[in-house]
Amino acid sequence: MTEKMTMGNMQMIPIELIDVLNPRDRNKRVFDEIVANIQMIGLKKPITVTPRIGADGITRYLLICGEGRMKAFRSLGETGIPALVVDVDDENALIMSLTENIARRHYRPLELLAGIQLLYGQGYDKKTIAKKTGLCVEYVQGILTLLKKGEERLLVAVEQGRIPLNAALSIVGAGDDDKSIQLALQEAYESGELRGKQLTQARRVIERRQTLGAAVTKGVKRKVQDVTTSSLVKTYQKEVDRQQMVVKKSQQTQQRLLFVVSALRELLADENFTTLLRAEGLDSLPKYLSERVFSGDRSL
């Protein structure tokens, strides 16, 4: 792919002759801000276009970047807009448009992911993509790994800041085994990567990933299977197995709590231990444990 590009020159281009190369949807509030800004202080940065000869022989222009500014101009009743006209081929025009969108401060998650994927598909390696987009190499490598595995649900969660990239990669590395996934979550928690709200978000993403799949593509209808006696029995058995697993986990949790309560009773019976706790300001317990430790009730 050629990287050559003729230096651009400023021209006033009729808006009706501009075709959008890489259209983007915008939040109405953001668009209104663009319009108000241009109305108040004018166009601070020209749009970028590249010329193309149409089938009728008339020169038209592909918009590389500045769609919001162009639409704002049109909404203000303007028929022309200042533009930097550059001479690039279709491939470079698309790449320039993508990198412009990716480098923006505010972007939609899937927009960023699609941009990185397309750049990679055009033959750019992770270092070049990182350089063009302003992202770090490790981040681009992580995103490409998730893209190759089709983990759209995790990708969106990462881009929305719900879970860290490293945690998402750990979840993928655990495969589909529930025990391995839970272990990956535990390790992420212990390392400090997942705490509080992020840990809750990660669990939700994993549940949806296991239930609905890794992809988040909209508009794809799942095949509806015919209901048969066999399928009903299988569904029932699957639900029974799930319920049994829940009961088993609750019993395990209860046994662990009983052990904790018993151990605390023995420790708190040791005067030296309680003196040490008071000295360190650790002489209180959560209400739930306190009621059971000091009441002598061995049931939970």
Rank of each mutant, 00 (worst) to 15 (best):
Ala184Asn: 05
Gln243Pro: 03
Asp178Lys: 05
Gly150Ser: 10
Gln182Asp: 09
Ser262Tyr: 02
Val216Gly: 04
Gln182Gly: 13
Leu212Met: 14
Ser231Ile: 09
Val172Gln: 09
Ser170Met: 13
Ser231Tyr: 05
Glu151His: 14
Gln201Thr: 03
Ser250Asp: 05
Val247Ile: 13
Leu194Phe: 00
Gln254Lys: 15
Val233Arg: 12
Leu268Asn: 00
Lys223Val: 12
Leu232Ile: 13
Thr235Ile: 04
Glu151Phe: 11
Leu144Cys: 14
Leu169Gln: 06
Gly213Asn: 08
Leu232Arg: 10
Gln201Lys: 07
Arg195Val: 01
Ala174Cys: 10
Glu239Ala: 13
Gln252Ser: 12
Ser250Val: 10
Thr229Pro: 02
Tyr189Met: 02
Arg204Leu: 12
Gln225Asp: 11
Arg203Tyr: 07
Thr253Trp: 09
Val216Ile: 15
Ser191Arg: 12
Ala168His: 10
Gln243Ser: 11
Lys148Tyr: 12
Val156Arg: 10
Gln251Asp: 13
Asp270Ile: 09
Val172Arg: 05
Ala214Met: 06
Gln210Gly: 01
Thr145Lys: 14
Lys148Glu: 15
Lys248Cys: 07
Leu169Ser: 04
Val247Trp: 10
Arg208Ile: 00
Ile206Asp: 01
Leu258Cys: 02
Lys149Val: 03
Leu199Ile: 08
Gly219Ile: 11
Val247Asn: 11
Gln251Ile: 13
Thr274Cys: 14
Ala167Phe: 04
Lys148Asp: 15
Thr275Gln: 12
Arg209Tyr: 13
Ser262Gln: 07
Glu266Phe: 00
Arg162Leu: 14
Leu154Met: 09
Thr229His: 12
Asp176Ala: 06
Gln225Gly: 02
Lys218Asn: 15
Lys238Gln: 15
Ser230Cys: 01
Gln182Thr: 05
Ile206Thr: 03
Asp241Lys: 13
Gln198Asp: 07
Phe259Gln: 09
Ala214Ile: 04
Ile171Val: 07
Val227Asn: 08
Val216Cys: 09
Ser170Glu: 07
Ser191Phe: 05
Ile181Cys: 06
Gln252Ile: 02
Gln255Ser: 08
Asp176Asn: 08
Leu264Trp: 01
Ser250Leu: 14
Leu276Trp: 00
Val246Gly: 02
Gly196Leu: 04
Val216Leu: 12
Asp176Met: 04
